[in-house]
Design a protein around this nucleic acid. Structure first.
Lengths: 268, 268
DNA sequence: AAACTAAGTTTCATTATTTGGGACTAATTT
DNA sequence: AAATTAGTCCCAAATAATGAAACTTAGTTT
């Protein structure tokens, strides 16, 4: 047992080193990596060398540390462009954020977690820690709950089994039952709230983005702070959010991708 | 000769498949990959399988296509956080963009190219194609020229050799000589311009971000459109930009990283 | 409906690469 | 100067990658 993921040969092992470096959250020395890794020194060393060569890790000679490389950033940008959702939603997010003067998030569901794929700050940004590329819990965020509400029971059960139900704040839902009950309400309303469930003082309304046939694409939220507004006031934005979600979904299905008429060439 | 980059064994070859998928700019079928790849079918197939298993690629069963995976997005977010520049600059970008009501870019130099690492849209966003993670040419962007102006001659020569000098617009600098001459001016002024050299109608002022000891960290720019302002007016922002660049550099060297007092734990 | 075609998947003997203990070197500490 | 620690390199044994060809769908054509 064990190895669910690092099972695919040399490549899988090398990639696990990327996660290892990422897990430190800061550039690390080789010796630090070694203490946290089961690979023998020479093996780990070779992986680090290879990955650095490849631009997946970056070595800083001044501090003698390895960090995640810039090639990852380039590739991630490619991922962002390829995903049909984020580029299409872009203009809609601009419009929403400008119109409502609040922070707007676009998220997708990934392995039972919320992945924030885009964000627009309010003109006066909130002291809040979310960024494109960041992952967060599904059971206690507006976007997470909005998305869960659109899945069939079996899938929801699967995902619930992966939730930690850690109590971040006094209002965090900490049981599957509480969550399921709320999902029912969300299905009825078509939108979800974050009632300071993840960060104290931070509230939001969120709506799912679904195709006409009901397939989940992502979710959209407007976030603010209790010092600035109330849940009731935020709820007024729900119709605007639902329209935007519908517009995004429509563009998605309309543009069943552009069949490469345009050559990427030119660059070089 | 040949293989400068894909020289490191199986891992390098596998990673080259990521670039291949990225190069299409959209999700691709296996057969399409095959036509563009020199790997034998079975080999390419195994790489694609492995990478998909690993979350570096994502397979969409509906369209039978492979795209770049979500693990890349997570890792890239880690890269962004680890890089000392981007997280520190964040608040400064917010402030600049709010104060000047224009689009602000943060960029770094990577393999002779400009890599945009962060961006703040003006309230009224410009029809302009730049995003965090995107790469652009160094010789015809404000940030690119500002950074080149801070490097020693040998490095500049190296980088110039990698530039295409493609003429994007009538004002694009299309020779090494023209560029070198302008770099001289930039060194004298401490800031650079983009005179619609990359996109028609788009202009900017940029300043380098350098340590006290002169090491290049990145660049900062304020971008606008000819329909909205002029170069002369943009130049008024230069002192404000220089102050911000200095502040970012100061924070960078002050915070010679936080030595992990805070445990990443908690998550799960 | 049978024959053809193309895309995707699996097999397996051969071949090339990874593996990792340990030796070596450089830098820091006692 | 000796000891400790961090980083780098080597090479025979062990293992994993390779890729031609066979096989399985799925989609067309006759």
């Amino acid at each position: 047992m064990a190895d669910t993921s690092s099972a695919d040969g040399t490549v899988g092992k090398a990639l696990s080193v990327l996660d290892l470096v990422a897990s430190f959250g800061r550039p690390v020395r080789f010796a630090e990596l070694q203490t946290k890794s089961d690979f023998p020194k020479a093996t780990l060393y070779r992986f680090v060398q290879t990955l650095t060569n490849q631009g997946m890790l970056a070595f800083n000679p001044e501090t003698q540390t390895y960090g995640l490389g810039i090639r990852l950033v380039r590739l991630a940008h490619g991922a962002w462009r390829q995903s049909s959702l984020a580029p299409i939603a872009q203009a809609h997010l601009d419009a929403l954020s400008l119109e409502l003067s609040e922070t707007v998030h676009l998220a997708q569901l990934d392995h039972g977690q919320v992945l924030y794929v885009d964000k627009r700050n309010a003109a006066n940004p909130l002291p809040m820690y979310s960024e494109a590329g960041k992952v967060g819990p599904a059971y206690c965020t507006g976007v997470g709950k909005a998305m869960l509400a659109c899945l069939d029971d079996a899938t929801v059960q699967d995902i619930i089994a992966q939730q930690s139900f850690h109590r971040f704040t006094p209002t965090t839902l900490t049981s599957a039952e509480a969550l399921l009950a709320e999902l029912k309400d969300i299905r009825a309303d078509g939108h979800s709230f974050d009632r300071e469930e993840h960060e104290p003082g931070i509230i939001c309304v969120a709506v799912p983005i679904i195709t006409e046939r009901g397939r989940l694409l992502g979710a959209l939220s407007v976030t603010s702070a209790t010092t600035r507004t109330t849940l009731d006031q935020l709820e007024h934005h729900a119709p605007r959010l639902k329209n935007t979600a519908k517009a995004i979904a429509a563009e998605m299905s309309a543009w069943r991708f552009p069949d490469q008429t345009l050559t990427p060439a030119a660059a070089e």
